[in-house]
Nucleic acid binder design. Structure first.
Lengths: 217, 217
DNA sequence: CCGGACCCTAAGCGCTTGCTCAGCGGCGCG
DNA sequence: CGCGCCGCTGAGCAAGCGCTTAGGGTCCGG
């Protein structure tokens, strides 16, 4: 029991904004459980147990199990949106911004693959109005990425005939990292990020730097 | 041939190998339900109801609900493997084989997105030994694709420093089609296949054939 | 007419689920 | 010290779950 509680708590303090302490422990425990077995296969007893408390304690901090998922999804998608926004709003060419966007976005999905798995693959378990709200966040992320690719296509840096389709593919690539990534795999989150950034830049037909011909920094 | 009955079940033609008729109807109903709500959120009563029979009838044809998922996963992954094998075993350059592999593999995931969603995203609900068996099929699919990319890298057609990583990314791209594709979206399965084939060929740095209306740098 | 093989159903069993509620213990404050 | 507050628990409820069982309708060879 105590071991389970400690393990839940040693997780990243990505939930630092959640108070009080018991509510935060519950979020951490729920993310772990949802990522492992999926929302519907996880019981409230399991979540409470991992957080080191009785099943009834969960309902002091959250009205329902679905509200827990909603809180997790909200925080996670807001974080993902901020990452994309930081890259999209930076100075630099479309190539530089796209590289940064894919690198950081894919890296986050690898590093926080448990959280990412929950927020990307358990969405359908949300109630209709919560689902709609979260979908709005995703659409904003999508628009930011699409604008980068559109900019590159307009300026001639990229060769993308189908900007929405290419955007979809890039986003799909990054998101799906959460499905296959494991901490004990051969790649670090950093490596996944740079690999994916390289692959995507070639996918959009960006000029190839540093490979055969050196480019001025 | 019971033409009328078969036409009524035309949605589920891909399960033609499943007999008797009631067992096939159950498979079709289960795929539909699993794809919509997920394995754990689907009840045996729902499956039986969609198939037009009582809950108890399910257990005449399948020992458990998990066995239904196992049958579905087996048939689906064997089909996916055959598609990949056909492309990998064809005559032609690595470029031609990769284009064909991605085009047909991605197209199948779009056209049969309900089945694909179940077999790719509900795997964890299988029991350990069934899971291991299905994972073996996936590994064979992976190897076939990796060999194509390796061939292209060896012959100099592709520029892929990280062959396993690139293989993972390509497979991930195609599989994830099942997650976002819907029949009422703007793209047909055929269009998804050709778009993805183009994107992947550029991703591996294949020489650019007479491109359409691209804007040369 | 029989008698069993084959499919199917109505009813329901044992269990787990999400969630509730009366009450308890330790803390801060008067 | 006494008292209220609040986070929490033990016990448990109604509902729904996967799955079982006893039996009924239909067809067929005899």
């Amino acid at each position: 029991m105590a071991a389970a509680a400690e393990r839940a708590e040693e997780e990243h303090e990505e939930w630092a904004g959640v108070t009080p302490d018991a509510a935060r422990r519950l979020v951490g425990a729920a993310v772990e459980a949802f990522a492992e077995r999926g929302y519907h296969a996880t019981t409230t007893r399991d979540i409470a147990g991992r957080a080191g408390m009785s099943p009834a304690a969960l309902y002091i901090h959250y009205k329902t199990k679905e509200e827990l998922l909603y809180r997790i999804s909200g925080i996670g998608h807001e974080k993902a949106l901020r990452i994309m926004a930081a890259a999209a709003g930076a100075e630099g060419s479309a190539t530089e911004r796209l590289r940064d966007a894919v690198r950081t976005f894919a890296r986050w999905h690898a590093e926080h693959h448990t959280t990412a798995r929950v927020i990307q693959y358990e969405l359908q378990a949300l109630g209709p109005e919560h689902y709609a709200e979260i979908t709005g966040l995703r659409r904003r992320t999508d628009r930011l990425l699409r604008q980068i690719i559109q900019d590159g296509a307009d300026s001639g840096e990229f060769r993308a005939d189908d900007v929405p389709g290419t955007t979809l593919a890039v986003l799909s690539l990054c998101v799906d990292v959460a499905r296959w990534f494991t901490a004990d795999g051969p790649r670090t989150p950093d490596e996944v990020g740079t690999l994916y950034a390289d692959l995507v830049l070639r996918m959009v037909g960006a000029p190839d730097p540093g490979r055969s011909a050196g480019t001025p920094r």
